[in-house]
Amino acid sequence: MTNYVKAFAVMIAGLLLGFAMTAVSLGLGRGFGALHAGPWTAWPRHGAPDIDPYARAVLARSGEAPLGRDQGLAFFARTDSSGAPLDGRCDYRILDSTPAARFWTLGAASATGRLIDNPADRYGFTSSEITRREGGSFEIDIGAQARPGNWLPVAREPFVLVLRLYDTPLDVESAPDPTTFPKIVKLHCA
């Protein structure tokens, strides 16, 4: 009888350990095969049929619908170009330089991936609507306080930037050149 109790206890311990490890692995990342370019990170396999099971579970849990490989890539930035975490109590400037793409969008989301509620009802910019300087360059200011020009509002809490490149010739099998991606520069903090 004691052998049955010991076997049952080992099975329960194994099950609990398995569930705990699965929860930890789902909370730590978005799967394998990340593509890095400075502070920007993408997971090109998320929209492909060969997506790994951990990434599939993370996407199912978040409800995100990733872009297919032939549609484009979504890059996420949780830090500025110097490596400091993005914080809504600070002001940032995005300096233009985007990889080749037919169309791109740049938006801000909460650290959990939700839209940031703001009185301006502005959640992002597109390559076709952004105000550009002579020569085609642009800057986007990010912060909680309104300002003229290209301003992207955020809440006074940690946030993430999302750059989506549609119909891009970017080679996902090799490391992209970080100099072709927007720089995220911290200006000052409140």
Rank of each mutant, 00 (worst) to 15 (best):
C189I: 11
F75R: 05
R69G: 13
G38N: 06
A9T: 13
Y54W: 14
R61G: 06
R69V: 12
P44L: 06
D141S: 11
R30T: 10
A108P: 01
H46I: 01
G136Y: 03
A48S: 15
L165V: 12
L35K: 10
V154E: 05
A77V: 03
D121V: 02
T126C: 05
Q145L: 13
R30I: 04
G143D: 06
W151G: 11
A13T: 13
A77E: 05
A9H: 09
V24W: 08
A20Y: 12
S82V: 02
A146L: 12
A74N: 09
I130M: 03
H36V: 04
R69I: 13
T41W: 02
G38I: 07
A111L: 03
S97F: 04
T2Q: 14
L165G: 11
A9W: 10
N118M: 05
L73M: 14
D171L: 05
V24S: 01
E129F: 06
H36Y: 09
G38F: 05
V172N: 06
L67D: 08
S110N: 04
Y123N: 11
Y92V: 00
L15S: 12
P176T: 10
I140Q: 07
G72A: 09
T2W: 09
G47Q: 07
T79R: 10
G149V: 07
Y92Q: 01
L16A: 15
T126E: 09
G68N: 11
L163E: 08
I142L: 10
D52V: 03
A111V: 06
D177C: 00
T131E: 14
W43Q: 11
P85R: 08
E173H: 13
P176K: 05
I94E: 01
I142A: 09
Q71Y: 04
F138H: 04
S110C: 00
F75K: 02
Q145M: 13
R45F: 14
D141M: 12
E157D: 05
D70Q: 14
G47N: 11
F181M: 11
L152N: 08
S128C: 06
L26M: 10
D177I: 02
G63F: 04
R114P: 01
P182H: 02
R114N: 13
A155H: 06
G47F: 07
L17T: 15
A42E: 05
R45P: 07
F76Q: 07
L73C: 04
T79L: 00
I130P: 04
